[in-house]
């Protein structure tokens, strides 16, 4: 089992730009968030773009609040709230995509936020690939990742893709090892 600090240490060593997949089990979810969003992002002084495709952004915000993580430099792209018919509140730092099938709109929101960050060092986190895989076939998903990661690479940003090991398939694991320079497993199982 990797601790949040250990995870952050591994990430800090990675050159900018890099694409990393982080696999973890459900019980390590908070550790992964702490390691990436808190320790790694503050150490590297990064603007954070957090894409939620699994849980609505307000749940993630609750988690971050619980972990006492500073949210000043975090922007959310929320792909689930609108499908669920929720999201009455529209906080300033949350951008909504109508559904997790609108992958182009996710890219467009990332592009928009990267522009607003005006070249400041950034990290884009996708939480998580498994839920995107429920709504999209593998072909379109890998096309999406190729374009997204390459455009972020060109902008010198980090891409971090969360992957729930309990729900991952061999196909997804294969895709991650193909498009990411680094595949980390927090549980030490299989993916490392």
């Amino acid at each position: 089992m990797m601790t949040p600090t250990e995870l952050a240490d591994v990430l800090v060593e990675m050159p900018m730009p890099s694409a990393v997949s982080i696999g973890f089990t459900t019980e390590s979810y908070f550790d992964a968030i702490r390691g990436v969003v808190d320790i790694f992002a503050s150490k590297k002084n990064l603007e954070t773009i957090y894409i939620t495709s699994q849980m609505p952004s307000n749940s993630i915000i609750d988690v971050l609040t619980l972990l006492e993580i500073d949210m000043k430099r975090i922007h959310f792209i929320d792909c689930v709230s609108q499908v669920m018919g929720g999201a009455v509140a529209r906080p300033d730092n949350v951008y909504f995509v109508e559904s997790p099938t609108m992958l182009e709109n996710i890219m467009l929101k990332v592009e928009y936020l990267m522009r607003k960050n005006k070249g400041k060092d950034s990290v884009v986190i996708l939480d998580a690939i498994n839920s995107l895989a429920i709504h999209n076939n593998t072909k379109i998903l890998s096309e999406f990742f190729h374009i997204l990661i390459n455009s972020l690479r060109a902008k010198n940003a980090y891409t971090i893709i969360f992957s729930m090991e309990d729900f991952s398939s061999e196909e997804l694991k294969g895709m991650m090892s193909l498009i990411c320079e680094n595949v980390i497993s927090m549980s030490g199982k299989g993916e490392g």
């Binding site: 890219m107 467009l108 928009y112 522009r115 076939n137 379109i140």
Partner: peptide, 19 residues
């Protein structure tokens, strides 16, 4: 390409063909 109208102007990304 897929287009979005934003306060930063028009943004464009390639249309994904996989689906």
């Amino acid at each position: 390409y897929v287009l979005d109208l934003t306060p930063c102007g028009v943004l464009l990304v390639p249309l994904l063909k996989g689906g």
